[in-house]
Design a protein around this nucleic acid. Structure first.
Lengths: 213, 213
DNA sequence: CAGAGGCTATCGATCGATCGATCGAACGTC
DNA sequence: GACGTTCGATCGATCGATCGATAGCCTCTG
């Protein structure tokens, strides 16, 4: 078979959870989308909540791995921050369904299932916090409330998944570069207008997400 | 009675829809929160969907009215944009539950019920677009993709409802001013570092939302 | 090689629970 | 006694989940 049933179940869940929400998606909806009976569904998953948690884990691990790889070696905080922004935007543009599930449905998880998901998200945000804090310490960023600004920038970038369409006027590269510039400006970046290593970001996204960007 | 049952139903719906989502909130949950039987609920509302639509209408109309009042008379695009940002942030900080319902649950409405809600949101966003476009035309904003930037800033500001806590280190005034500054920078504002008329924004929020800010 | 046994994948039928919504009746107030 | 408000009881529909059964395939055995 071209795609395994397991993959179809996962893809169906991502699509439906993103468009109709977790509670708005029934077991029978999932079964229909995955072209299986509702009974067969349970051959590939635990409970519906397990399925959601698994989606979040793989999505967040992928984003975290990509961000770590892209910023490995430390270096210039400005460049690192621009890389994180571009990567985040690319990820949200190529996989809006998955990222919307991660961003919107965390609260439906039981506390026990939510805890490791939040831990992954926190680890990811620490990469942003480190780049921002180091930039502020080095004087290349001039911003009054670094922690609040980090949250503001993250929300700004995640919002891409809510409206971006590949049929719009902006190509992915322009989008990522523009957001890197917005973030750079918001942080009061004092160095020369930077360039982002988009090629590297695209490569990482292509590898981790398995799409050609 | 101190608060009418009608108000309790509305407040219960806002609270529960925001925390558990529309589909995650049952009629019996609403009834318990509003301290009524599930049957009595229907004395004050139509269907559950009607209740959601009504919440969205009042919330969006309030925001739209406030934004129109705050920017009435036109004038400097920079000042208008800063006012819109501050107002938006204040609104999302004092009423996070309501704004989260508006921002997250639009898609659960049937097309017929969704259409007027989207129209209200579009009217609101046009105020932002006008301020940004006029600023770009006047040369006080220097930004490459004004439409995309508008969406980015709106998402950034709406995100406040997802994390802001009045028990945090930032007072409302500092928060609103900081976001106005972030937006101003992102737009490449060329005029002197602006000040926002926070007093006026606070007055409008206090009046429209019925809270002391 | 025949076939017994086990494993994977799938299904129709069905479970008890809960869903949104409605009914007729009772309450208090004017 | 009319009206605005409240409720217990209950409706048919749908929920997430499980059941026993079946068909195909691989492996081990005699």
């Amino acid at each position: 078979m071209a795609v395994s049933s397991r993959e179809r179940v996962r893809a169906a869940a991502v699509k439906l959870f993103a468009t109709k929400g977790f509670h708005g998606t029934g077991i029978r909806d999932l079964a229909q989308e995955a072209e299986l009976s509702s009974a067969s569904l349970y051959h590939y998953m635990g409970t519906k909540e397990d399925l959601l948690a698994e989606i979040m884990h793989t999505a967040l691990n992928r984003l975290l791995d990509a961000a770590r790889e892209a910023t490995a070696g430390g270096g210039d905080p400005v460049h690192r921050l621009r890389t994180l922004v571009a990567l985040h935007v690319l990820a949200h543009a190529v996989g809006p369904a998955e990222t919307r599930v991660v961003d919107n449905e965390v609260d439906v998880l039981s506390p026990a299932a939510r805890e490791p998901v939040v831990a992954l998200r926190d680890a990811y945000e620490r990469l942003w916090a480190a780049a921002i804090d180091e930039g502020v310490a080095a004087g290349v960023f001039r911003v009054e409330h670094p922690a609040v600004t980090r949250l503001a920038l993250l929300e700004m970038c995640s919002g891409v998944a809510r409206w971006y369409s590949p049929r719009g006027p902006l190509a992915l590269d322009e989008l990522a570069e523009h957001y890197a510039e917005l973030a750079s400006r918001a942080l009061g970046c004092t160095s020369a207008p930077g360039v982002t290593d988009l090629r590297r970001c695209r490569e990482i996204v292509a590898k981790e997400w398995g799409v050609s960007v």
